[in-house]
């Protein structure tokens, strides 16, 4: 187990270094002189020169890279040139928001996707199956932002049941929190629910044909027990894998969803920072997302190792 872990971590390190280099270089490729942008277009040449000096834009790229990565290892993500607030705490503020939204979206997708998938599998080729399949295809095809705007128009503007945007932390006001993330979670979770449903359906179809299901049925077990205990629990393994791997999709979806619902999470931070040319903030969030993604994959590997007896036997 330890060797396996060490192996995985060792493989992750070059990936992380590569990510940091890519993140850093992407920023350099963006058009425009950052000092001019920070200066706001009305600064005098002296001010521009001072900004270049302050932010180290005059140093060679390699030096700039090592400065940047060195600061990050010391936990210093820089200071927003716009608001003068440190970026590290800003990110810390935003992580719980995106995590709450992501968890709610995941919950929504599980609650909708799994039962529908089971229903579709049980009624394969019949009416239900078609309805669910149409739902799944629409769920995957509808763009996030469009669905978001439609929901806002209906539930916030027309019916005034839910707020059109914003975020209330769960610790402050649980009901307010639920109201504020209901629509965003549905928007973010819809595509995921559709994917979940399709996976559940195919996993269930596969397992329902297995010998042990037939055996269970021939033992005279109630159909409900056969489906839940024998079929579904086994189908759950690929579903869990899918759920873990959807982390990246959630993060990417959060970028648009948070923008539409003006939710102050990491996704909105990335978009706003790009528009405001907050280079350091964009770098920091992109890098952290990359690290989180690698960490999630590592976690998935470990879970898989733990869950799959064959892997353990072969080590």
């Amino acid at each position: 187990m330890l060797r396996f872990l060490a192996n995985r971590v060792l493989v992750a390190i070059p990936t992380l270094i590569l990510i940091s280099i890519i993140v850093f270089s992407l920023q350099q490729l963006l058009p425009g002189d950052p000092a001019l942008i920070i200066g706001g277009g009305e600064a005098s040449p002296e001010v521009i020169a001072a900004i270049r000096e302050e932010y180290g834009f005059n140093d060679p790229l390699v030096i700039q890279y090592f400065h940047w990565i060195g600061d990050i290892f010391r936990g210093d993500f820089g200071v927003s040139y716009r608001t003068r607030q440190p970026i590290g705490p800003m990110i810390l503020d935003k992580i719980p928001v995106t995590v709450t939204l992501g968890a709610a979206a995941m919950l929504f997708s599980l609650v909708i996707g799994i039962p529908l998938g089971i229903l579709a599998a049980l009624g394969k080729g019949k009416g239900w199956d078609h309805v669910v399949t149409v739902f799944a295809m629409s769920g995957i095809s509808i763009p996030n932002f469009w669905l978001g705007i439609m929901l806002i128009l209906l539930f916030a503007v027309k019916l005034r049941w839910l707020p059109a945007g914003g975020f209330v932390p769960f610790t402050e006001d649980p009901i307010g929190c639920l109201r504020s993330i209901a629509m965003p979670a549905v928007v973010l979770g819809t595509a995921l629910a559709a994917a979940m449903m399709r996976h559940t359906r195919s996993a269930m179809l596969n397992i329902l044909q297995q010998d042990y299901v037939r055996t269970a049925r021939s033992k005279g077990l109630a159909e409900r027990v056969v489906i839940v205990r024998h079929a579904f629990l086994n189908a759950l393994v690929p579903i869990i894998t899918l759920a873990t791997l959807q982390f990246g999709t959630l993060l990417a979806g959060a970028v648009l969803t948070e923008q539409v619902f003006s939710i102050p999470g990491l996704g909105k931070m990335v978009v706003d920072s790009v528009f405001n040319r907050e280079y350091q903030a964009v770098q920091a969030v992109t890098l952290l997302s990359g690290v989180a993604f690698v960490a999630m994959n590592l976690l998935a590997d470990i879970l898989y190792f733990w869950a799959n007896p064959k892997l353990r036997a072969n080590r």
Binding site: L153, A156, A164, G165
Partner: peptide
């Protein structure tokens, strides 16, 4: 003050009374 860079998001929030 709520920050809403997107024009249509700002408008939707006004229309919904938020």
């Amino acid at each position: 003050f709520r920050v809403m860079p997107d024009d249509s998001v700002r408008l939707a929030n006004l229309q919904s009374g938020d």
